[in-house]
Amino acid sequence: MKLKQLSLFLENRPGQLVQAAQALKEAGVNILTLSLADTEQFGILRLIVSDWEKGKRALEAHQCVVNAADVAALEVSDRPGGLAEILGIIEECGINIEYMYAFTFGRDGKAILIFRFEEVDEAIAKLQARNVNVIGSVELFELSGGR
């Protein structure tokens, strides 16, 4: 049920983001969601794309440094307290969050959050045991309109 996330090393200088976006465009890879972490000197662009292997190849061909890592997409209620609820469950399960960000769309009053856990398989098993809906890549792709 885990998803592949691509991450890219970016120096903090103009035009860096465009280059990556261009590479994916040329390869016909769709970006489902993204998050950008910036520090004083560099940034890390994290992407969930329609076809991660193709995306990785395309980016590497553009001489980008790319990593693929496993993340989990969790469904939460799109109402006040929804985030608190899921974070509460995660804490109770004793799972460490490395970082997280939101998916751009949801359905039927549900929102989707992307989590990077230290031990993703273990985390997914624990969460599923607590009836948290972990969304797979096919489902996610369909959700985003199947483009």
Binding site: S7, F42, V65, N67
Partner: peptide, 18 residues
């Protein structure tokens, strides 16, 4: 230069390398 061998998606890890 950052190579695929040392790159990480975690800010902390990269700062650690630095």
């Amino acid at each position: 230069e950052v190579t695929a061998d040392v790159f990480s998606d975690k800010v902390r890890a990269l700062e650690g390398l630095q």
